[in-house]
Amino acid sequence: MSDQILIDGEGPDGVATVVLNRPQSHNAITIDMYRELPGLLGGLDADPDVKVVVLRGAGQKSFASGADIAEFERERGDAERARRYNEHVAAAERALDGMVKPTIAMIHGYCIGGGAGLALACDLRFADDRARFAITPAKLGLVYGLESTRRIVDLAGPSRATWILVSGQQIPADRALQLGLFDEVVPADDLAATTYGFAEVVTTRAQYSVRKGKEMVRRVVAGQLRDDAETTAIRNGSFDTGDYAEGVRAFLEKRPPRFTWK
């Protein structure tokens, strides 16, 4: 693992924090960071001790200010290199979007371009009240990818997604909350406590329910409207985990449940 991406022990047990660690450049994302993310996230998804992943930028000025434009002439200097670059970006976003475990983007300050792409690939986005969100390909003569565009449309709707894409304008935190791009907006000093407080709640829940609930949401977003054999098996599988019996027992005994499924 490079020093441009860190895994931080901040937060409660069961929560892994992935830090985009280039504060000197507002955590602008390099091609090496995009290359590194899929393997790192895959390892966290496979780790039985990790229940929630938080993605954040180093410091409190930026989540990520975008892809590192200083690399563009070298890494995207012609069409073929640009295609390869785009493949790495898409792979990093898919790795986040495809995680079995819940993911939360903790957004201080700027969340721009490629940074916004990573944040949108997370399940939830908690931001401070100084945050600024923007998708900026129209300012660089680029076109946003279909999968990334779909995530904006899913959250904000088609007309607002169009407004975001064609303008490239920065959106303040309160407006991003109204548009559905952010899920929580709090004062900067409260962001870590709010994010990790929610993450800790998720770690106390039955993990089969958490992960399969996330899968159900993903299926609905992909267009599935009726149960099939797979979704029926997912739902019925909860009765075989042991956590169902523990949850009922804990409720009747008026105590916190001790869930064990990993």
Results as ranks from 00 to 15, higher is better:
K254E: 14
G9E: 12
L165W: 04
G42Q: 03
A70Y: 10
Y34I: 02
K139R: 15
L191Y: 11
L181A: 06
L181M: 12
D78R: 06
G180V: 05
D123P: 09
D13T: 09
A95D: 00
E87P: 00
G114M: 04
I104N: 01
V50E: 00
E87T: 07
L37I: 04
I31H: 10
T194S: 14
L177K: 09
M216I: 07
Y85L: 00
R130M: 13
A193D: 15
G59S: 07
R151D: 02
R258F: 08
K214S: 09
R83T: 11
I7C: 08
V54E: 02
I29Y: 08
F72Y: 15
S238R: 09
I104Q: 03
P256K: 10
F198K: 06
T162I: 06
G42L: 00
G223I: 05
L41S: 02
V19I: 13
E253H: 10
R235A: 06
A90Q: 12
F251H: 12
V185G: 10
S148G: 14
I171P: 10
T232A: 12
D243I: 00
P257G: 01
A250Y: 06
R76T: 04
T30E: 02
R160T: 09
R249K: 15
D45M: 00
L124R: 14
Q60F: 07
P23L: 07
A28T: 11
V89E: 07
Q207F: 02
A119P: 12
A90D: 14
H108D: 09
V185W: 11
F239C: 03
P257N: 03
P38L: 01
L146T: 13
L118D: 07
V221T: 11
R160M: 06
A233I: 01
K254G: 09
A116N: 04
V143Q: 13
D183N: 13
F251D: 05
P137L: 05
A250V: 01
